[in-house]
Design a binder for these strands. Sequence first.
DNA 1: TCAAAGACTAAACCGCTGTTCAATCGGCGC
DNA 2: GCGCCGATTGAACAGCGGTTTAGTCTTTGA
Lengths: 223, 223
Amino acid sequence: MRIGESPAAGGGAATAERIRDAAIVRFGRDGFSAGLRAVAADARVTAGLVVHHFGSKDGLRRACDAYVLEVIRSEKMKAVTGSASGMIAQLAEVEEYAPLALYAMRSMQSGGELATAFVEQMCRDAEQYLAAGVEAGKIKPSRDPAGRARYLTYQGMGALLLWMSLRNGSVEVEDFRTELRRLSDEITLPALELFTDGLFVDRSLLDDYLMYVCDPPAGPAQP
Amino acid sequence: MRIGESPAAGGGAATAERIRDAAIVRFGRDGFSAGLRAVAADARVTAGLVVHHFGSKDGLRRACDAYVLEVIRSEKMKAVTGSASGMIAQLAEVEEYAPLALYAMRSMQSGGELATAFVEQMCRDAEQYLAAGVEAGKIKPSRDPAGRARYLTYQGMGALLLWMSLRNGSVEVEDFRTELRRLSDEITLPALELFTDGLFVDRSLLDDYLMYVCDPPAGPAQP
DNA sequence: TCAAAGACTAAACCGCTGTTCAATCGGCGC
DNA sequence: GCGCCGATTGAACAGCGGTTTAGTCTTTGA
C-alpha cells in the first residue's frame, strides 16, 4: 500500500486504471507523440509495467479509446444543446470529463478508430436531433436530412479541431475550458444569424443547383 | 553534371529548390513526422546536405512554409468561388499546385506560423468577399461582418481538416483531388439549403440572444 | 597553378523511442 | 514454511530521429 489508494486487493487492476487515466490526460495534453515513459511517470510507475498491462503503446491507446468512447456513449450526451461542437463543450464543462474531451479532440486530430466512431455517432445523434426539431416545427425540413446532419457535424467539429490545431503545442485543461467558452461566445451571433436568416438574399443558386441535378442524393435506392 | 539538371552553374541553388519541393511533397503526403532522410532520398541527396542548406529540419519547414504562403499569396487565390474550402479545392485542381494544397492542409493539422497566417488571410479574404456580395445585393448583411467571415472560414476549413484527419496515414495526391471533388458534391446541397433558407423556422433564438446582449461584440473599442 | 570556397557525401554521434529480459517483491494456496 | 504467480522494477537492447564532423570533389578566382 502506497499512499491513499488500493481499494481492491493489492492494487493490481487499480494500477491499470491509473495508468489509463494518466495516459488520457497526457495524450490529451501533449498529443500521441508523448512517450510511454512520460505516461508511466505520471502514473508513478515504469514504462515496462505499462506494456506489461497493455501489451504495447498501441494497446494502451486502444484501451484509452475504448474507455473514452464508452464514457461518452454511456453519459447522456444525446442531449446536445444544438451545435455539433456543443457536445465537446458540454463534456468539457464537467470538471471530471474535461480530459476526456481533450483526448477526443487529439484523437480526431490524428485520426483512428475512436475518431471515426466518434464523429459517426455524432452524425447520427445530430440527424435524430434535427429530425426531432423538424417534428416539433422548430427546424426547417431538408431534402437530404442525413447529408445535412453530416454537413453540420463536420463543420462544427472541424471548426473546433482547426481552432485547437492552431494553438500548437501542448494544451492545458484549464485553458481548454476557458478558451472553449470564449470561442462559443464569438461564434454564437454569426451562427444564429446564419441559422435564422441564411446567407443569400435570393434562392437562385439553390434553384439552379436543384435544376441541374433533378433527383436529390437522398438515398441510393430510388426507382 | 549528373543527369538532366543544373541549369545554373554547378546546380548549387537549384539543389536547394529541389530539396524544398521534395520536402513539400513528402510532408504533404506523410505529415511532418517524415524523416529528413526520406526527404533527402526523394531529392536524391543525403540528409547532411539538407541541414547544410537549411540549417535544420525546422529551417527546412520554415522555407517550405514561406514558399507555400508566397505562392498562395501571389496566385490570384482571391477569386475564391464562395465557400472557404473552395480555396483549397481550387488550388488542388491545378495539377502543379496540388502538393501545395496538401502541404497547407498538413500545416493546419499540426499548427504553426504558416497555418495561422494562412487562415488569417483566408478570414480577411472571406470578409471582403462577403462585403462585395453584400454590396452587390447578393448576400445579406451581418451585424458582425468580421465575425461572420471568421465563423464561415473556420467552419469550412475545419470541416476539410477533419475530413482529412479521419483518413489517417499518408494521403496520395491523386486521392486527395478525387476525394476532394466527392466531398464537394456531398456538401453542396446542404450548404446551399443552409445558405438560402437557414435552419430555424422562427427567429426567436436570435431575437432572444440579441435581447440578452444589447450591443453586438463587433469591436472591442466602444464607449 | 595554387588555394580558398562551397557543394556534397559517408559515417559517426547522441538522444529518444518502444520493447524485452532478468530479477525482485509480495501475497496466497498447499 | 514452501513454492507459485502476478505485479513491478531497473537495465539493457535495437532502431530511428536530427545533427555533427571529417573528408572528397568541383568550381572559382587571383
